[in-house]
Simulated scan of single mutants.
Amino acid sequence: MAEPSGRLAGMKGYDDLIREALDTPFEGWDFSLFGDRVTHEGGLPWDYETMVRDRLPATKALLDLGTGGGELLSSLAPLPPRTAATEEYAPNVPVARARLEPLGVEVAEGTAAFDDASFDLIINRHESYRPEEIRRLLTPGGTYLTQQVGGRDLEELNAALAAPPHEDAAWNLAGAVAGLRAAGLDVVWSEEAAFTTTFHDIGALVLFLRLISWQIPGFDVTAYDARLRCLHEEMTRGRPLKATAHRFALLACRPG
C-alpha cells in the first residue's frame, strides 16, 4: 500500500502513523516513497550525477562504491565497457544484482574482489571508504569522485529525541581531504554545503530513522515514545521538525 501524502498523514493518529512506519516495506535506496512528507529547502551547489555523467565517455573501467539497489548506476547506462559495483548492506545486495547484472555489472560485497589499478573512475555517493584502498584500486591518472554525508548531518533529530550525537560527528571535508592526500592522492576540487530537511509527520520521521539506522543506532519507538509523542503534537500544530543536512564532495586523482 502506498504511503500517505503529507496532508493525509497529518490526519492520522500517532499510533497509526507509527504502525505504518514500522510496517512499510523498503528496498534499495529509493526515497521517493516519502513524497511530500519529507521536504528539502535549498540544495547543493554541485550536481553529483552530472559530474559522473560528464566523465563516463572517457571511462574504460568504472567502480560504484555503495551502489545501494543500483538505482543511480543503472540510470547512467550505457555504462563503460567494464563496470562494477560494491554493496555491503546485505538486504541491498540481491536488489542490486537483480538490477545491475543484466546490464553486465559485477556486484561485489566489498573491494577485496578487485585487483590493484583496476578502475580509471571510482564514484561514491554516501558510502564510507578507506583512502588507501581508493589509491590501490585506481589506475595511475585515475579519478575518484565522491559525495559524502557529513558527521553533523541532521543532528537536530538526535537533539530533539535526546539521543547521543553521531559517533562520526567530526567527519567533514577537511578530514576527508587530509586522508586522501595522506594516501598519495591529489585533491583537485572540493566543496561543502548544507540545506534544510523538514519532517512533516511523525511517521515519516520514524520511517527515516528505521531506514537510516546509523542516525540513531539502536533506535526503538518504545524507548523514545515520550519524545516522539511530543514531536507528534508539535507537528499536528503545524510545527514540523527541521534539521540541517550536511554534505561535501570532492574530486581526487592518483598521480600518473
Rank of each mutant, 00 (worst) to 15 (best):
V95C: 07
P80V: 01
F26R: 05
Y48H: 13
R82D: 00
S118P: 07
V38E: 03
E41F: 15
D116K: 13
S32N: 04
R37S: 03
L33N: 14
V52C: 13
R53H: 03
R97S: 07
E41R: 13
L56N: 07
A85Y: 12
L56S: 01
L72R: 14
T83P: 05
G69P: 04
G69W: 03
L63W: 10
G68V: 07
A108T: 04
E27H: 15
T59M: 10
G104W: 04
G66A: 10
E49Y: 05
L73R: 02
R97C: 14
V95W: 04
M51V: 11
L79N: 02
E101S: 04
G68Q: 04
L100D: 04
S32P: 04
E49V: 15
G104S: 04
E88M: 12
E41D: 15
L65I: 12
R97M: 05
S32T: 09
K60S: 15
P81Y: 06
G42L: 06
A61G: 06
L73E: 09
P78M: 03
V93A: 02
A85P: 11
A117W: 01
D36W: 07
G69K: 00
M51C: 12
E87P: 11
A113T: 12
A84E: 14
E88H: 11
V105W: 11
L72H: 08
G35E: 03
G70N: 01
A112P: 00
Y48L: 12
S118M: 01
G104R: 09
A84C: 15
G110N: 07
P94Q: 01
E27G: 10
G43R: 03
E87R: 08
G28H: 07
N92R: 02
G42V: 10
G43C: 03
T50K: 15
L33W: 05
L65F: 09
G28C: 02
V93W: 04
A90T: 00
A96S: 13
R37V: 08
E109D: 06
D36Y: 10
T39F: 01
P102C: 11
T50V: 12
L62Q: 10
L44N: 05
G66F: 07
T50H: 14
T39S: 02
M51Q: 13
A98M: 07
F31T: 11
T59N: 12
A108S: 11
D116Q: 12
A58S: 07
E49W: 13
A112V: 03
E27S: 15
R37L: 06
T67V: 14
L72T: 14
E71D: 14
D116E: 15
A85S: 09
G42S: 00
L72E: 13
L76W: 09
A112L: 05
P78I: 08
R82L: 08
D36M: 08
E27P: 09
D64Q: 04
L76R: 12
G69V: 03
G43V: 00
L56I: 08
T111H: 13
G68H: 10
P45K: 02
G70S: 00
F31Q: 08
E71G: 09
A77N: 12
A90K: 10
T111M: 14
R55C: 01
W29Y: 15
L33M: 15
G66N: 01
T67P: 09
A85K: 07
G69L: 07
V38T: 14
G68D: 08
E49M: 12
